[in-house]
């Protein structure tokens, strides 16, 4: 039995889009103009989903084609989600003007700690870190080292404490060297 026309058309579409998926904007993948209204985004997505959702091709046995289809479909769904969110869409449009075709979801909410204290979980460790930083800023390096020692006893593995301790140690050594 020959491959049916739908599968044939799909394979051709995959061959066109899959190799440079990252060069397609969400607008291109959804086949909509860049000034599209939110309602039209949904309508376009429903049309794409009806035509391209992997469930529409239960007989597609070619593993590679299936994976390509999932990648492309997932990107189209991502486009629908971002373009349906007014704030994300503004951010996406700005990025797109600079050539970024994909909205970096993690970027905006990058989970880096806002200050060193936030990366600690133990309340006591936080308190002593605060005291250590105060001492350091006041020029009292020995006081800073002592409080850091306390903080580390409450949260031994904390990277931020290890790093800070190393910095202060170095400064202390520098002072000792300078004094001789």
């Amino acid at each position: 039995m020959a491959t049916d026309a739908r599968t044939e058309a799909l394979l051709q579409y995959l061959a066109e889009v899959a190799p440079d998926l990252d060069l397609h904007s969400y607008y291109q993948l959804l086949d909509v103009p860049e000034d599209v209204s939110p309602d039209a985004v949904r309508a376009a997505f429903y049309q794409k989903a009806a035509a391209l959702h992997p469930d529409r091709f239960p007989g597609l046995t070619d593993r590679r084609a299936h994976d390509q289809l999932v990648s492309i479909y997932a990107r189209i769904a991502e486009g629908y989600r971002i373009l349906s969110d007014a704030r994300k869409r503004v951010a996406y449009d700005q990025g797109l003007a600079e050539g970024r075709t994909r909205f970096a979801e993690g970027e905006r909410e990058k989970k880096g700690p806002r200050n060193p204290e936030e990366s600690l979980t133990n309340e006591q460790a936080r308190k002593f870190l605060r005291l250590a930083l105060q001492a350091r800023d006041a020029g009292d390096l020995k006081g800073a080292a002592m409080n850091l020692g306390f903080a580390r006893s409450f949260e031994p593995g904390a990277e931020v404490l290890t790093m800070l301790a190393a910095q202060i140690d170095e400064k202390l050594k520098g002072q000792a060297g300078g004094g001789q």
């Binding site: 979801e105 990058k110 989970k111 880096g112 700690p113 990366s119 979980t121 904390a158 990277e159």
Partner: peptide, 12 residues
């Protein structure tokens, strides 16, 4: 998991 005990949300 990323540095400092934080999590980077990969999937919303």
């Amino acid at each position: 998991a990323v540095a400092g005990g934080y999590a980077d949300t990969v999937v919303q």
